[in-house]
Amino acid sequence: MLNHLEEDASLLNKMLKGEESAFQEIYLKYRKPLFIYGLSIVKNEDISIDLVHNAFVDLWQNRLHSIKDAKVKGYLYQIIKSRALNYIRDQQLKARNASHYYIEQEELPDDKLDRLQLKKELQSAISAIPSSASRKILEMRFFEEMSYKEISLAQSISVNTVGAHINRAIKTLRYQFKKKPLIN
């Protein structure tokens, strides 16, 4: 009777010769223990299943290069450990990057006040546009984010007329902001 090391060595030799049945025996022998080992590291069943799957893919693909003198069990456990730790590292890095992103995106109280003041001044400038049609079309374009075509259908005017109204309104705003800039 062969001990497990001799059995693994025999299966490895058969697998090196391309016998898929030997690979299947190794798979059936180690998949559950490898799954449990991976699960103990990553704490996620789906990820552990992926780790085991990838370990066996790696075993098959590298059978002629990496594991000639290696012990199959140790080789597989090392793959699981390495990839599990890489997964954890990647998740921590993603979480860290996400937290930096959200911290950078948070508004400070002064920013909120500045935005409110800017919004008030912009609304005041828009309300000072002499043509109510140009004012309405400008609001539809930039605040309601409607396309020129959508505005033309809503107002029953041509797309070119929409463009003319928007250009006229923007010129008026530029003139107002030259007189009194929004940002002090």
Rank of each mutant, 00 (worst) to 15 (best):
M1F: 09
M1G: 05
N3E: 12
N3T: 10
H4M: 12
L5H: 13
L5C: 08
L5M: 07
E6T: 02
E7A: 15
E7P: 03
E7W: 14
L11M: 11
L11P: 05
L12S: 01
L12D: 01
N13W: 15
K14M: 13
K17R: 14
K17E: 05
E19D: 15
E19Y: 08
E20I: 09
S21A: 04
S21C: 01
S21D: 15
A22T: 09
Q24N: 12
L28I: 03
Y30T: 04
Y30F: 12
R31W: 12
K32Y: 11
K32L: 09
I36Q: 13
I36D: 14
I36Y: 07
I36E: 14
Y37V: 01
V42N: 00
K43S: 06
I47N: 00
I47T: 06
S48V: 04
S48Q: 03
I49F: 11
D50I: 08
H53I: 09
H53F: 07
N54K: 11
A55Q: 04
D58W: 05
L59T: 00
Q61M: 13
N62H: 11
R63Y: 07
H65A: 08
S66I: 08
S66N: 15
I67W: 09
K68V: 13
K68Y: 05
A70R: 07
K71D: 13
V72K: 01
G74L: 06
Y75V: 04
L76E: 02
Q78F: 05
I80P: 00
K81M: 06
S82I: 11
S82K: 13
A84L: 01
L85K: 15
L85M: 08
D90V: 04
Q91N: 11
Q92T: 14
L93T: 06
A95T: 10
A95Q: 12
N97S: 06
Y101R: 13
Y102K: 07
I103T: 07
I103Q: 15
I103G: 05
Q105G: 03
E106V: 00
E107K: 15
P109N: 10
D110C: 10
D110Y: 09
K112T: 06
L113T: 09
Q117L: 13
L118H: 06
L118M: 07
K120I: 06
Q123C: 06
S127M: 13
A128R: 13
A128H: 11
I129H: 02
P130V: 11
S131Y: 01
S131N: 06
R135Y: 10
K136F: 07
M140H: 01
R141C: 03
R141F: 14
R141N: 11
E144H: 02
M146A: 03
S147I: 04
Y148K: 08
Y148A: 11
K149V: 14
I151L: 02
S152P: 01
A154P: 02
Q155D: 05
I157A: 02
S158L: 10
N160F: 13
N160M: 09
V162N: 00
V162A: 00
G163E: 10
H165N: 13
H165L: 02
N167Q: 15
K171P: 02
T172V: 03
Y175A: 15
Y175K: 15
Q176P: 02
K178R: 08
P181F: 09
P181S: 05
P181V: 03
L182I: 09
L182R: 05
N184W: 09
